[in-house]
Computed example of a mutant assay.
Amino acid sequence: MPRTETETDTGTDAETGTGTDADTEADAGTDAEDTLELRLPAGFLASLAGAAPETSLAATDSGTPVPPGDLLDDIGGWGRAATPAGAFHLLPVRIERDLPRITRWMNDPAVAAFWDLAGPETVTAAHLRRQLAGDGRSVPCLGVLEGTPMSYWEIYRADLDPLARSYPARPHDTGIHLLLGTVADRGRGLGSVLLRAVADLVLDRRPACARVVAEPDLRNTPSVAAFLTAGFRFSSEIGLPGKRAALMIRDRSLRDLL
């Protein structure tokens, strides 16, 4: 799964990913780290196996142990969230329907500066297909507000991602990446509103998940502020490929306090 960025309420870009885009690195001939190559410690896998009855472990073709079944609990069926900006829901991406729109967003200079996916449709298509052809650890989605697709999201299993090597991951930790598609939706507090709504959706629809995580660049203070406004807390500074990141966590146990 790629490491990507989020656009904040200030109109500047703030990241929720872990550094350089894996697809771009692979195309350039460098060694790119992908979620399918992740090897988790045996103790962690044992705790995962005991976390829920459906998490008996199987091996993928790459040899990575993963739980069988839907790793993200049917995002397409999560339903709508009521927000101050209107009804919002996540719609899993279909390339034949959504590729032109997402490609256009990726070619916005403010987005391209962090996502590294500017270029023709083939670039965005490769990025999306990498996730869609995987085992379901990362699901690309459109964010639809009041019937209008206006943002792009990646909901992913942080505990099964290379990110898990950089912090004390827990079974079913769920990560989010976000971009707002148009300039008109930036700089007016919408990013924080949607971050809170999606984090609440994750916690409501994924009962085994106790935490939602994100990893904006530590230098991007507007992004960190947006996550704090959305009910995330700053956990620690972590080193990730290409950046120092602020590990932001939304805890189920604290969701009504932050």
Score class of each variant (00 low, 15 high):
T8V: 14
D9S: 14
T10P: 04
T12L: 15
E15M: 14
T20F: 14
A26H: 12
A32W: 09
L36H: 14
L38G: 11
R39K: 14
R39F: 10
L40K: 12
L40M: 10
L40W: 07
L40N: 05
P41T: 01
A42Q: 11
A42G: 14
G43Y: 09
L45D: 10
A46E: 15
L48D: 08
G50P: 06
P53S: 08
A59G: 12
A59W: 10
G63N: 05
P67G: 13
D70M: 04
D74K: 13
I75E: 01
T83F: 03
P84W: 07
A85V: 02
A87Y: 10
F88Q: 00
L90Y: 07
P100C: 04
W105Y: 08
N107V: 03
D108P: 03
A113G: 15
D116L: 14
A118W: 10
G119R: 07
T124M: 09
A126N: 12
H127P: 02
H127K: 12
R129I: 07
R130H: 10
Q131G: 10
Q131D: 14
G134Y: 04
G136R: 00
R137D: 13
G143W: 00
G143Y: 00
V144H: 04
T148Y: 05
T148D: 13
M150P: 04
I155Q: 02
L160Y: 02
L160M: 06
P162W: 03
L163S: 04
P168D: 04
D173F: 06
D173A: 09
T174A: 06
G175D: 00
L178H: 03
G181M: 02
T182Q: 15
R186E: 02
V193F: 04
V198D: 09
A199L: 07
A199D: 13
D200C: 03
D204P: 03
R206N: 06
A210R: 12
V212S: 03
P222E: 15
S223F: 11
L228Y: 07
G231Q: 04
I238C: 09
L240Y: 01
M248F: 11
D251N: 08
R252L: 06
L254N: 12
R255Y: 09
